[in-house]
């Protein structure tokens, strides 16, 4: 039974804060999915529902058609790796031992190879590890669990760039050998975006975007040229942002351009280029603060 994920109109509150406000999302099994959102947008809340650490106040969560809450068999197949999480007095070997007990799919040999690759000392207490090594231990536990749904909640944030790239390589290589659902939330959008088959963007507890990564990329277009020509071209379409340099204006458009529109732009002497995913994300979620304050 493949573990498709289906959330329907899910609400989750912490006191007066509405962390998830009617979020609906379907994820097919065995894809690598990037989960993007600003701080406080509800990414961690969403993942803790899937890991059944919480139950929604309203709406339904289904994994492989089942309600995951207090379903121990299902939960042994779902892993959520946060930034910290382990008991700080344990040492690395203890953490691996309990992971092995918890997870029927645990691969101890792979865990050992990963610890060597990330140079994590085995005998040290978690509390005495550097932030980067703690993150590497988290990544190791997440990968070696081989859980059918594996979620990394900014796990690799504390790793330096070479270690992060080593993590991306390992993630991809192991995914190719053992396809499974991977949900990765990150602020390093651009460096990892090419690994994502799909991108989910949530904002203020709601789903903003969910599509194939290439489709999401194609939604952002940058139009650059003389200000008046740019304005004529962008009249009546959604403009996410504008920046001026002298009389040159760069406008960020939302929506895919038809070949006809592209031709018009060329004839008007405008430069057309795609927007990096990170920029698109920034534009789409930038008004959060304004509206809240």
């Amino acid at each position: 039974m493949s573990l498709d994920i289906e959330l329907t109109d899910v609400h989750l509150r912490y006191g007066s804060t509405e962390a998830l406000a009617g979020l609906s999302l379907r994820l097919e099994a065995d894809t690598i999915c990037g989960l993007l959102g600003r701080n406080g947008s509800g990414k961690t809340s969403l993942m803790s529902l899937l890991a059944s650490l919480r139950r929604p106040d309203a709406g339904t969560v289904r994994i492989g058609g089942r309600d995951p809450f207090e379903d121990a068999e299902l939960m042994s197949r779902v892993a959520l790796i946060g930034e910290g999480g382990s008991d700080p007095t344990d040492n690395v070997a203890d953490v691996l031992r309990s992971a092995a007990l918890l997870r029927p799919s645990w691969d101890a040999g792979y865990a050992a190879r990963l610890l060597d690759r990330f140079e994590v000392p085995r005998r040290k207490a978690i509390a005495s590890l550097s932030r980067g090594k703690r993150a590497a231990l988290g990544v190791t536990c997440g990968l070696a669990a081989r859980a059918e749904i594996t979620m990394f909640d900014e796990t690799h944030l504390g790793m330096d760039a070479p270690s992060r790239y080593a993590f991306y390589d390992e993630l991809l290589a192991d995914y190719l050998e053992h396809p499974r659902t991977v949900i990765l939330s990150t602020h390093h959008v651009e460096e990892v975006a090419s690994l994502f088959a799909q991108v989910v963007i949530i904002d203020r507890g709601r789903l903003l975007v969910h599509d194939d990564t290439d489709e999401v990329r194609a939604r952002g277009t940058q139009v650059t040229g003389p200000a008046d020509a740019v304005d004529r071209f962008t009249a009546g379409v959604t403009v996410l942002g504008r920046r001026d340099l002298g009389r040159t204006r760069a406008a960020a458009l939302y929506g895919t351009l038809t070949p006809e529109r592209r031709r018009q732009a060329r004839e008007a002497g405008l430069d057309i280029g795609p927007m990096p995913l990170q920029d698109l994300f920034v534009h789409l979620t930038a008004d959060t603060e304004k509206e809240q304050s």
């Binding site: 894809t31 690598i32 190719l176 090419s194 088959a197 990564t213 290439d214």
Partner: peptide
């Protein structure tokens, strides 16, 4: 597709496309 994915560090679905 898998060789392409691993070589270029991209999702195999992208290579398959």
């Amino acid at each position: 597709t898998n060789q392409y994915a691993a070589h270029y560090r991209i999702n195999p679905a992208t290579a398959a496309k």
